[in-house]
Design a protein around this nucleic acid. Structure first.
Lengths: 102, 102
DNA sequence: AAACATTTGACTATTTTTGTCAAAACAAAC
DNA sequence: GTTTGTTTTGACAAAAATAGTCAAATGTTT
């Protein structure tokens, strides 16, 4: 259950990069990357995919981590958050059957 | 597994109101309510709560329906949507334990 | 304290979401 | 088939949320 923030920070430290270097390579302001690594800001999906490529991380895993972070923070202060997440799963399953069988 | 749209449309029809009447009572443009009832637009949380009051519906149930709609449509076209919803549940549970024990 | 890395915060830009309005579409009655 | 009444559509404006930029502040090592 890793956060996106932890995953990219650990990946960077393992490779021994400085923020400045990653920022230059990926063409993203280093202040923003710093915020990504502390979960203060959420990247776009495109950026997530580029991080996966840059650090050679599994793309699906990283996207799932990022997306679940967003969902969790989105519903965290909602009284019905957990219940809504469960119901949403059912709705997604249902909606997908419709899409397929259209 | 009802959508917010269905719930408020059915509630209105049961009470025999016209959009115009609901719009006037709730001070929301009737075009928007029409879109709410077809799921074309999502109301704010405040509006959801006002709908619950206006139609005498269970507030928690209506909010959950609305929130799960939003989550479902949010992840519907994401490859990792369903998995992310599950992971998000775990993250929410975890984050709440932290909040409590702070 | 010098040199270098990271974090913070104020500000702007961009994107997404919401609101307004008038006209178009639909339906029933006559 | 036109009048009356309801709902839907779509173009546009307003507001809110999210993302990006930059310089200064903070932290760390030597």
């Amino acid at each position: 259950m890793n956060t996106f923030a932890d995953l990219i920070r650990i990946a960077r430290e393992e490779k021994g990069f400085f923020l400045r270097q990653v920022a230059a390579s990926m063409d993203i302001d280093q202040a923003i990357i710093s915020k990504f690594e502390r979960g203060e800001r959420k990247p776009t999906k495109d950026q997530v995919e580029r991080f996966a490529e840059f650090y050679n991380l599994d793309k699906n895993q990283l996207v799932t981590s990022w997306l679940s972070d967003k969902l969790a923070s989105y519903v965290l202060d909602e009284e019905n958050g957990e219940e809504a997440l469960k119901v949403a799963e059912e709705k997604v399953k249902y909606l997908k059957t419709i899409q397929h069988g259209k």
